[in-house]
């Protein structure tokens, strides 16, 4: 049974970014336990950033304590582009995760409504990936129901 005060996660490394914000690197399997622990300490989610490092993806969570004014960066790296979702902990994670899914293609496992937030649902590829081809233009068309469709053919959209 889990006792209060038990630390169920392992910190891989601790460092500082150039703006003196503490960076904590953890394994992605420990993410939920780590965040639960920090949530009980009074932290709230501020932002989620995905970074494409070519051979793997990094997911960066900024969490913030409004009482002690501490700002912490939590870094998780993932090979297959999947990380557990934090929507059960903070509602703020909902849109942030949808944004990172849309633009970076990170799959947040356990998210109820993981749809694209900016681009149409049928869009091909995730633009912030370094492998995304910027020269391929996609055209959007709206049908009479109001649903958006995407095509590579210039005549089938605008």
């Amino acid at each position: 049974m889990k006792q209060t005060g038990d630390i169920m996660y392992k910190i891989i490394s601790e460092s500082e970014d150039k703006n003196k914000i503490k960076i904590i690197q953890i394994d992605k399997n420990d993410l939920i336990e780590f965040m639960e622990d920090y949530k009980s300490k009074g932290y709230y989610l501020s932002s989620i950033t995905g970074v494409d490092m070519l051979d793997h993806l990094e997911v960066i969570y900024h969490i913030h304590n409004y009482d002690t004014h501490e700002y912490i960066e939590v870094k998780v790296s993932t090979q297959d582009g999947k990380v557990p979702s934090l929507t059960k902990l903070w509602r703020a994670a909902d849109w942030d995760e949808r944004e990172q899914y849309d633009l970076m293609g990170i799959i947040f496992e356990g998210h109820d409504n993981l749809r694209r937030i900016f681009l149409p649902d049928e869009w091909v590829g995730h633009p912030l990936r370094k492998s995304y081809d910027l020269k391929k233009v996609q055209y959007i068309r709206m049908d009479s129901e109001g649903n958006e469709h995407v095509s590579f053919n210039e005549n089938e959209g605008w």
């Binding site: 970014d17 150039k18 703006n19 932002s47 950033t49 970074v51 960066i60 900024h62 960066e73």
Partner: peptide, 27 residues
């Protein structure tokens, strides 16, 4: 890498920038 936050008109405006030693930002 650096994360900065300022108070804009609407609230906390944060910018995360990562460089890889070149003239252009990586992210």
């Amino acid at each position: 890498e650096a994360f900065s936050r300022i108070e804009s008109d609407n609230g906390e405006f944060g910018v995360y920038v990562r460089g890889n030693g070149t003239f252009k930002p990586w992210r």
